[in-house]
Design a protein around this nucleic acid. Structure first.
Lengths: 328, 328
DNA sequence: CTGAAAGCGCTTACAG
DNA sequence: CTGAAAGCGCTTACAG
């Protein structure tokens, strides 16, 4: 059983036109008479003809392929992101070449597939990139956008929530409510998201003369759960726990509940992301809503814009606080 | 800024060999003297040369591309599946072209991208395929595997857990514990997974003279939550709730807890999938563990085997019951 | 072991 | 509006 792929040549033969004409019918904007077009389309339909994207990409240098690399398969936030990206990219005629990495830093060899297929752009949502890799991509003139993080040392675009000001706004709420015993649970320390949320939150509160106890988490539920459990066992039940992301806040929330502490009466809990689960009745987590759709739009926009090569751009979007049942 | 892609020709020039030789160096198994190989590799390295997968695919008809189509972005189970697939496929030299669909049934146009890029195989994890689409794929000789579902009317491979026997085993446990008031919450009715789990569970229990109350869910947390909540409100608190998947069971579990019903003392809750969240301390859900890794391995195996075209195969794997804290 | 040449399935000037 | 021809970057018989 050979793979029988119909080529434009065969369509041309049956439609009594040249192969060039068939090609034109499938090239938006090319000039073909309506009559010819219909004739070709009819034959193509019968033969189930489909232009070969590889051949097309080879000659046009436009592959309509975008590489998407993602790390944290655990955090539901990124699944939503993936879904939205593929949907919106497809709407623009792009297909996504997906890479999932377990490494903290995306490796050269993982990016190689992207290069081999001449992807037109690369989106990195949750992993780190070494500057070597970025440099290589730049040599190949492939625009890279970091999604939901940034790295000053890297020459690439970046789209994220304005984590500092968001965290400040959350801090302002905490301050206004007159809470004194405040805990922040970090995410992975090497992520800009965790650092910025910590900074925005702590700086504001410190400037008001308040002290923030920081616990080092790692963006997992388990870590946060145990951190909180231990804290309570050691006799410390804070008035506020702000988690660097929702998963973190959820871990804290469950630890609190397990210890019989009433939320939000004794302790208020706040997250960041607004993943689907946070709106589940059991959790009803108050959190910062990241404007995912907008972030995705911006990313795609940036990637297309690259032609005017105005240098790496950093876009920060706002989002908003949503109060559910873990705050008052 | 032009995209400067180094071609084998340039490498050949600098290495003083023919372009064919450069090609051979990058073709596993081709005969090149070690000396030549080194020389070429050195130049290639300097120039950052990378064979163009499009050109290669065009001529060899081997694209090393696999299409993966997925629907339910909500169920964490499929994210794990996605992660494992990309990892294992990559290990075999394949890249994955990802499509996320919101349609109940995958549409022709969504599959078209797969065809245009000549993917070597297609994996469908959570969506339906019309027989038209499958037929078209068969015409193009592209093997399709349904992951975690099957469809008798479709001529394609399928890999899933043996849902019937798994559900039977769960039923046997329920029977053995002497529970009488038993509820099953379905998933989407048009999925084989939900139907089979229902069948295995109900048939066994019925054969023992027991009655199973069936509630129609849709594989979402919300639906299951409200279904359970209403049931309780209407005065019915069963001894057992078996959800067609974990998300379903989790929704029921939270509704139970919210109503102050003690789990597992008053009601036992069982799920199916063993998603990460089910092991979270708050839930500690007893559930059926799907052997994901094995299922993925089988799928990849099937896809490669297709050459011997022994017709569509249906593989069913076992998995096992894990008792956590929602059963006794 | 190596090179010259044909060809994969397209697009796109170039003529007409 | 349409066709003949060149060429994208590879692989692979075919000779030597």
């Amino acid at each position: 059983m050979e793979k029988k792929v119909v080529s434009a040549m065969e369509v041309a033969r049956l439609a009594n036109v040249s192969q060039s004409t068939v090609s034109r019918v499938f090239t938006p904007g090319a000039s073909v008479s309506e009559k010819t077009r219909q004739k070709v389309l009819k034959v193509a339909e019968e033969l189930n003809y489909q232009p070969n994207a590889l051949a097309r990409g080879l000659i046009t240098k436009k592959t309509n392929l975008v590489g998407l690399a993602m790390k944290d398969i655990q955090n539901p936030f990124y699944h939503e992101v993936l879904g939205i990206f593929t949907k919106k990219l497809r709407a623009k005629g792009y297909s996504v070449l997906f890479v999932y990495t377990e490494n903290e830093e995306i490796q050269q060899e993982e990016i190689n597939h992207f290069l081999e297929y001449n992807v037109e752009a690369i989106i990195v949502t949750d992993a780190l990139l070494s500057s070597n890799v970025v440099k290589k991509l730049q040599n190949n003139n492939i625009p890279v956008t970091l999604f939901n993080r940034y790295d000053k040392n890297l020459q690439c675009h970046s789209v994220s929530c304005d984590n500092i000001s968001a965290a400040k706004e959350i801090a302002a709420y905490v301050y206004e409510k007159n809470y004194k015993d405040i805990v922040f649970i970090t995410g992975k320390l090497n992520t800009s998201t965790s650092r910025d949320r910590q900074k925005g939150f702590t700086d504001f509160l410190t400037s008001k003369g308040l002290n923030v106890t920081t616990l080092e988490g790692d963006y997992t539920y388990d870590k946060s759960f145990h951190l909180t459990k231990n804290m309570i066992k050691n006799g410390h039940t804070p008035e506020v726990i702000f988690g660097a992301n929702d998963i973190t806040a959820l871990g804290a929330l469950d630890a609190l509940k397990e210890a019989g502490i009433s939320v939000p009466d004794e302790t208020v809990v706040i997250g960041f992301d607004d993943i689907k689960m946070s709106s589940w009745p059991h959790y009803a987590l108050s959190t910062w809503v990241q404007p995912i759709e907008q972030m995705v739009d911006e990313t795609i926009h940036l990637l297309a814009l690259d032609s005017d090569s105005s240098g790496p751009q950093t876009v920060k979007l706002k989002g908003h606080f949503i109060h559910r049942e873990t705050t008052k």
